[in-house]
Design a protein around this nucleic acid. Structure first.
Lengths: 245, 245, 245, 245
DNA sequence: CATGAATGAGGGTTCATTCAT
DNA sequence: CATGAATGAACCCTCATTCAT
């Protein structure tokens, strides 16, 4: 029987002998660690070689484990890609959203979110590469971060901060520009304040007056907190180690 | 010796025997036709399966010719992709630029260019799919169309129509948004005037006042002329035929 | 990660769980068996079709295994050829040299070695075919057997049994003649005592007096022992089976 | 109708109008020239890449003519190889035999033939490479030169200059050694008098007393005459030109 | 006869996936 | 659960040969 493939800690059977409990807990923890190691390796490989590349050999090589083990965790290539995309998107939100939510003003939120995202992209180039490689098509299907943007844009229009526009269009402009911006950060020498410029430009696009846009794009920005145990942090750390060697 | 791989019609040696001349002319014409057929088929396949897909089999299937012939024209997969990208980019420019150049005002040009591009994308969904699949990374390296945009943006800033901004940033916002917009046109039900809305939004992003942006985004738009012998027209026609069957 | 490509049995980590040990041992054994099967099949195919032939399909067909497995063991055609050549050369030496080393006299050694080699070629026609196909150029680079010959020739010259001559010339005459002799044994009706005649002739070439040469070329000859598990024996047996069917 | 494929000057229709005659003669001459050019190019390619290599593209490239023309002269790859082998063998004989026939003594003839052959190999490395590439198996089937050797060996045995031995064995020793010797001349630094040493050694092998062998192997040697229009001379000249560039 | 575009069988190589241990 | 050998479909690419011009 193939092992269950879940990311949730395997719905612990409540009550029952301690022994079992303990074993189950240890097992689940190990599973989770292995899974994370695979996701982390996969992100690096996708970032380096593109999301359509042949990947499994390199992933298990990077993770230092065997083929068989890989298939204990993911049924296929695509399942892996989906899982990585999902995990990255979720983490991105968990990291960036708190920074944006500092502000009540939707315009400030959008500007801050954009800047924070680019800041993370700058410190985590492999994450950025992964997202750029995936492209717009990939982004469109990856829920959470998208919803946060939709939320802020809708609130901004309701509050009269933004011009009325088709919500999808707002998303296209912001997401498309941010993705292109990440690409620029990765491959070209962008000015230090590129994120602020981009944020301001996008606010203008959304209908915010130029002066206001400038101001909102230059509010103090809390440093995005990337938990050291997160996929992103671990992947980047590992890449650094590999690069150093 | 395999046949030469050129797109140029092999500068005919002037004068001398009709026989030679005639043969050369016929040969060159046939070569050109075959090459075009391959490019056309390749665009369709890339659009359907992504630019990183392994493709040759499908291309020759679509083009209805043999493996060997393919390799008489392109040394490899990448060479093919490069050639298609180049050809598409060039045609795009030849089609869209005349429409934009109707106007002297750089802002009008940008708006018209954006709208015209989206219009072509709408009537040529396979072209759009091809560009979206390629993503920003592909666009960045494909000269001509990019240069036209750069030209207009620079002129606009010099003329004071646009805010001063890093040229690359302007490119990122416009190109990223247009690409995302194409994706939307392809996959979602976008409002009729999506292209005009997007054009207006991008003018605002570039620093044009809202009212002016609205007006410039709704100037009368000449219908983009897609020559029936162009790669784009032929590919789309062929796709239609295939779909009908 | 593809399986490692080694012929060594992967030095077992001593001590520790039986499980591991056992698994490792079984795995290594299986690997070794597969590798041998491939080498064996390859030798037959090279013998039949020449060492420059494209061969992999036939090799895996003969070995009865899949394309993928082949590439788990050899990176390419040439790597395979090199491995076979090496293995054959080594086995040849292991089989023939003991027979020659029975004698202390270098001249007796050379004569006995030549005869023994031809005897093996007679009983193992596929081996002979393989060597003839490879030709002098192949032999020249394949160490061990060559060194044994060099050793005996040098000793013979030092002991005054052979005329002084350029060592390479001695090698050329002996190796070239033996190869040609193998070809004759394979394709023409050679007299029973062809090996003895050839050995005697070569001794004369090396400077041994005619009478002595005759005598040394007709010493009692120990039967060359071809271990039943050797590449040679297995290949020949398999060829016999295939021919019978 | 495919053109006739002959090397003979197309059995001229005797008598008849001058016009015809003249045209036929010119045509036949042109045919012969083209054919020679192809043979010449083929020899170079075979020498460089081995007789089993894929060859036609390179041959027509070297000869500077088209695929179609090639097939007007040779029905296939093998036909080409056979023709080259045949032509080379014949020329070899025409060049070397006159030098050997200076002597009446069969032993002197053999020694002189061997030396002369190696001399030609030295001055015509591409010829040597071609022969070494072909190997013993190729030599065995290539008549003329072989017959000359057989003739001299038989005469020598009849005259009591050589020991009695199986004729095939004599051929194996001489041909095998000469081929190996050519390989040495091509790839290793052989002493100046390698040909004389080899000739002497082979005479000893055939049963000639050492002192006599030495003497016969050092008779004055007429310079082999390689006609400038021969395949060999032309090929070598062309190779030199190509190398210089 | 010469030309060279087109052909397609033949061989090489990769890589996601399975499965016995 | 982990391991890694085996699998084979899917690609890639070459090159001898044909044939319309």
């Amino acid at each position: 029987m193939p092992p269950v493939r879940t990311s949730s800690p395997a719905g612990a059977s409540p009550a029952r002998p301690r022994k079992q409990d303990h074993r189950a807990r240890v097992g689940a923890a190990r599973r989770e660690k292995t899974r994370l190691l695979l996701l982390e390796s996969a992100m690096l490989v996708f970032a380096r070689r593109g999301v359509e590349a042949s990947v499994i050999d390199e992933v298990i090589g990077t993770a230092g484990m065997s083929r068989g083990t890989f298939y204990n965790y993911f049924r296929s290539n695509e399942e892996l890609l989906a899982a990585v995309a999902r995990a990255v998107s979720d983490e991105m939100l968990r990291i960036v959203d708190p920074v944006a939510l500092v502000h009540a003003d939707p315009a400030a939120r959008v500007a801050t979110g954009v800047r924070s995202m680019l800041a993370v992209a700058r410190t985590h180039p492999h994450l950025a590469a992964f997202m750029v490689r995936g492209g717009i098509a990939a982004l469109g299907t990856q829920g959470l971060a998208v919803e946060a943007l939709a939320r802020d844009v809708a609130a901004g229009m309701d509050a009269g901060r933004f011009s009325r526009m088709h919500p999808r269009l707002a998303f296209d402009v912001v997401a498309g520009s941010v993705l292109a911006g990440m690409h620029t950060l990765l491959t070209a020498k962008a000015p230090r304040d590129y994120p602020e410029e981009l944020a301001g430009t996008l606010l203008r696009a959304l209908g915010v007056a130029n002066a206001t846009a400038q101001r909102l794009a230059n509010l103090p920005l809390a440093r995005a907190l990337v938990p050291p145990e997160s996929l992103l942090a671990r992947a980047e750390a590992r890449a650094a180690r590999a690069g150093a060697r």
